[in-house]
Nucleic acid binder design. Structure first.
Lengths: 126, 126
DNA sequence: TATATTGTAATAGTTGTATAGTACAATATA
DNA sequence: TATATTGTACTATACAACTATTACAATATA
């Protein structure tokens, strides 16, 4: 099961964030074939978004053959394995990192400060 | 002068991207106090966006005292430097870092991958 | 079979973003 | 003073994202 997280400030639509996280969950093996996802209603409540928003995300993923839905039963991970190309994964990493750097720097934090804080964070639970 | 770049695919609104880049420029010293920014019309043409979009970005930055505008003359970097108290600064750093980590992790990136990417980013221009 | 649960669909309304166009106000400059 | 340049303001339009609400269809289960 995924620990879904939405970031309202990111500017990225909720339904896209849900899609991304499921895709990455599948790609990284956190979600395995046949596994049931939360129901649209359950996930909507959990993420405090509208039912339609979750539904939209699931629908798109079904079109991509990543999910299989059965009305009355639920939504499941399809058996088409999603392998995210290395380049795509790398560019995603680069994107979120450089976006983060711009924001952090705009607050006056230096590159080193940021890395130091992340290193510090790495050790202990918080 | 800043080399403005807009990324339509990022999902981040144009006016926000403009704001971030100016804030970033100020924070990193690329933009110094008193320096004149491109006129709203010039920047709008350069970025191929509407005049109102640039105007909105400048307006928000003026409210934040980061810019000073004089009608008929232009828009300039203000001389009020945003200094944050040490404790507040530290907790701000912690906040944005841990938020970022949550998001990045949800995409399946490990702590180490992230730090490595940030380190990599540190060296070269991009 | 009856009921609950699941996904689906449709409508209406709100908000944020961006565009296009026009006009005006303040300042600089020829 | 006249003109150009700058920022500002306003209206209208369009679209995407999201919410709220309601209803329906398919399946599971008691």
């Amino acid at each position: 099961m995924i620990d879904f997280k939405l970031d309202p400030k990111s500017g990225i639509p909720f339904y896209r964030q849900i899609i991304d996280q499921i895709r990455y969950g599948v790609a990284t093996g956190k979600l395995s074939v046949g596994e049931q996802l939360p129901t649209v209603r359950a996930l909507a409540v959990e993420l405090k978004v509208n039912l339609n928003t979750v539904s939209k995300a699931y629908r798109e993923l079904e079109i991509q053959d990543i999910l299989e839905t059965q009305q009355g039963t639920g939504t499941f991970i399809g058996n088409v394995q999603v392998s995210i190309p290395m380049e795509e994964r790398q560019s995603k990493l680069e994107n979120i990192c450089s976006e983060f750097l711009v924001i952090a720097s705009s607050y006056g934090f230096t590159h080193d400060e940021i890395i130091r804080e992340l290193e510090r964070n790495k050790g202990g639970k918080r």
